[in-house]
Design a binder for these strands. Structure first.
Lengths: 239, 239
DNA sequence: ACCTTATGACAACACCGTTGACCTGTTAAC
DNA sequence: GTTAACAGGTCAACGGTGTTGTCATAAGGT
């Protein structure tokens, strides 16, 4: 290995693969996202990606230092796509609710990117734009700076965290999912009321609620708590 | 492969490994947890676990059908340990806050178990006990059944989701973590106010808040939203 | 003492990420 | 045009992974 690492943006001398395709960072990221969306997150490997691109796996290391680097590029593209289809209305709570649901939906297919982008800073364009936008919504709504940052942080992490969590269950093959439901019925729905009164009393609700994602509920709770804080702040300031 | 699968609880004929140790489900789970806690979640592999136990890796498949099965056993043991050191005081909000923090802390070292236990039902003792306990706290506080289940679900998933998310950053080696902080300083702290006014205005807060886990904030938001709902419910019922 | 069989061991399969060495087409300079 | 440099694609290998088919043997019941 001489340098191998990535020359940044200006590549010249692009030579086509044996199979005739010309690599580029965008093409690689697009192909990776397509593979993930079509065959699930765990179906992405450097070798499979190389095969899909018609290139030797090791070629990709001319563009990304490791797989994490590639996933960070995927994450930034994901942020970009999400922001692009989001239209703020000016009502902060509705806007954040919409954005949260969109982030969750987008990240659901890309859990690895979601986890990475929560603790790695890419410093890429889309990421910066997202931070600016969300903090802007909160500050414009009237949250003081420190509070805006804390709510921003909880909001983003919650969307990403639930997406990563929920992706594990949506990735489960259908028969396995039905097996899970069967365990619920076989175990929890049959616990006697004298040893497990609370489960027995709520078994009906458990069986309908547990197979669904709890993210919408968690999001609404977060937003209404934020609204309550904002009301307090306004009262305290105005009066 | 004849049957291989797991004979349930009653094993007879236990024969020691070549290195003289006698396997058992508990010993395997304990050893797995020890390995994870000592060397990180990604350090656990069937082969390493076998080595640590003084057994051939394939022997473990007499006790667990796949790695997920093992992780589910780890998850149940984790729930057990967490519940065991938790002492409810009777104040639902304080109790749930304490439990949430403990679950988060416990699962932080076992992210894979956390993710699995959120969407796979083990039906094991500790899991059942945890469900009964938490729903009990909520119902005793006065939440109606449907609401208690929804809040339970959001509460548990939030603790597990943030644990899985946060574990990725705590697992990061120290130099890498410092590199992240450097990116924050180099990129976000220097964005000019005319193009990125909100980031510029809050840069100071971002730099102190972002490296920390947002789970405590998210937990408090969830609990205060729940408290507000409870107050509404009580008012609506009483008056 | 024998027979059955549960259970541990072995070897193999098909993957994985990553890297050092090599080779060649493209480009820029002459 | 010719040539020389080198970016970037390719090859082969390393050391890992989960998992399974087959075999051998010690433990337990009779």
């Amino acid at each position: 290995m001489t340098d191998r690492v990535v020359p940044p943006t200006a590549r010249q001398r692009r030579r086509p693969t044996k199979q005739g395709i010309v690599l580029s960072e965008e093409l690689i990221v697009e192909t990776a996202m397509r593979l993930i969306e079509e065959h699930g997150a765990e179906a992405l490997s450097v070798r499979r990606l190389g095969r899909a691109l018609g290139a030797d796996p090791s070629s990709l290391y001319r563009y990304f230092r490791h797989t994490d680097d590639l996933m960070l590029a995927v994450a930034d593209e994901l942020i970009g796509r999400t922001l692009r289809i989001w239209r703020p209305t000016g009502y902060w709570r509705a806007d954040l609710r919409d954005l949260g649901l969109r982030m969750h939906a987008g990240a659901l297919a890309h859990p690895r990117a979601a986890v990475l982008s929560s603790h790695r800073v890419t410093g890429r364009d889309h990421e910066i734009q997202a931070v600016e936008t969300i903090i802007g919504v909160l500050r414009d709504a009237g949250f003081p700076d420190a509070e805006a940052v804390r709510i921003y942080h909880a909001f983003v992490d919650q969307a990403l965290a639930f997406a990563a969590l929920d992706s594990a269950s949506t990735a489960l093959p259908r028969p396995a999912r039905e097996a899970e439901a069967a365990v619920w019925r076989a175990t929890y729905a049959r616990l006697p009321a004298d040893t497990h009164p609370h489960i027995a009393a709520t078994a009906r609700h458990l069986m309908t609620d547990m197979p669904r994602s709890s993210y919408p509920m968690a999001l609404d709770l977060l937003l209404s708590a934020a609204a309550a804080r904002l009301a307090e702040i306004r009262d305290g300031t105005d009066t």
